[in-house]
Every structure is written in C-alpha cells, then in structure tokens.
Amino acid sequence: MIRDLMAKLASIAIMMFARALTAARAIWHETGLPPKQSIYFANHSSHGDFVLVWAVLPPWLRERARPVAGAEYWLKSKLSAFIGRDVFDAVLIERDAAARTQDPVEQMTAVLNDGSSLILFPEGTRNQTEARLLPFKSGLYHLACKRPDVALVPVWINNLNRVMPKGEFVPIPLICTVSFGEPMRLKAQETKDEFIARAEAALLSLAPSSTEDNA
C-alpha cells in the first residue's frame, strides 16, 4: 500500500523532471495515435529513453505500456529495483543467453497476452557508436511471430543522447522529440531478415535528416 503510493509519487516526480529537462513532445504519425495495444520499438542511447517514451504517451496508452529492460542492470541495487519494478513495472529480461533461466520472448509474449503494451529497444544495448542505429537483435521478429495481431510501432527518440552522454552524471536541459511511425505487422511469408530490415528502415526513416547537430 505505502509502496504503491511511493511508486505512484516517484513516477510523477520522474515524469515532471523529464519534462522540465527536455520539454518532451510527441510527434504522431499522420494516421493518428498508435493502437491501444502496441509494441513500441525505439532507438536506445540513454538510460532515460523509456522514461521519455512513457512520458509523452497519453495516460490511457501509458498505463498499459511496460518497458522491457535488462534484469542485471535494474536489479543491481534496491533503489533501481524499486524504480524498475514498482515505478515502471518493467519486464526484466536476462540478457546473458548462457546464464538465463527464462526465455525473454516467452516473458514478453506472456505480458502481451495480459493485454499490456511493450516498450522495447531491439538494438539490445545502448548505442554509443557514431552509427545512428545498431543492428537489431532477432527478438522483435520472434515476438511478431508469436503475436502477429499486435501492431509494432517504430519510435525515434531525438536528442536525449545529448542530454546525458555516457559517463556524465549531470544532465543538461535540451528539447527532445519522440516521433511515432506508422504501425507495422509481420507479413505472410516474410523471412526474419526481411522483417528485421524493414523494421530498421521504418525506425531510421523517423530520424531527422541532419546528423551534424547531434555529433
């Protein structure tokens, strides 16, 4: 009870902080808001990424959206476990394939079967290279095979990597935008490589054209 209340307060505080810092603004696709249940897949360059996606979603979409995150990172301390589990209700997956006890795709499918949406980062890790996007892991494809009825929505998060570059602990205020693309689905007979290439292209098409500003 008290834990729930604290989680609620913490989520409001984190959201207000994110908004004050970034004035985050959603840019919706011309077809309108994403469907109620969606798999949002986004570029990943900062720990704040899912907070920003979460913060710009309207309340009725936000309350069912659960971020997918690495268990070994979020279970490191009591505080991060509280934020990960209680505040954001994250689906914690084990990234180390050799050591894991649960299959991430099974975990995510179970969450979708409950009616929730997922926010996930198919690059698998934070992109700290000069490339705009790292090659996607195959999880997105396997998820699409299990639940071909759920729409996949590409989400490009712009500028957040400048707010807090790797290794810094003080964020700087900069305006960020979150662009939502057209919902996509797995096509009949589409191979894994075709689907992943299409998903990567859909996400990249949302990135602003000038890269120099973000260098």
Binding site: A23, N159, R162, P165, E168, V170, I172, P173, L174, I175, E212, D213, A215
Partner: peptide
C-alpha cells in the same frame, strides 16, 4: 536557454 542550446553545435567536451 534550453531552446537556444538545442539548436547550437555542441560536442561532448561542452557538457
């Protein structure tokens, strides 16, 4: 200032 800095060229070293 937030609007202005968003539009200028910054590098890691300016953080």
């Amino acid at each position: 200032l937030r609007e202005f800095i968003t539009l200028i060229n910054t590098r890691r070293g300016d953080h």
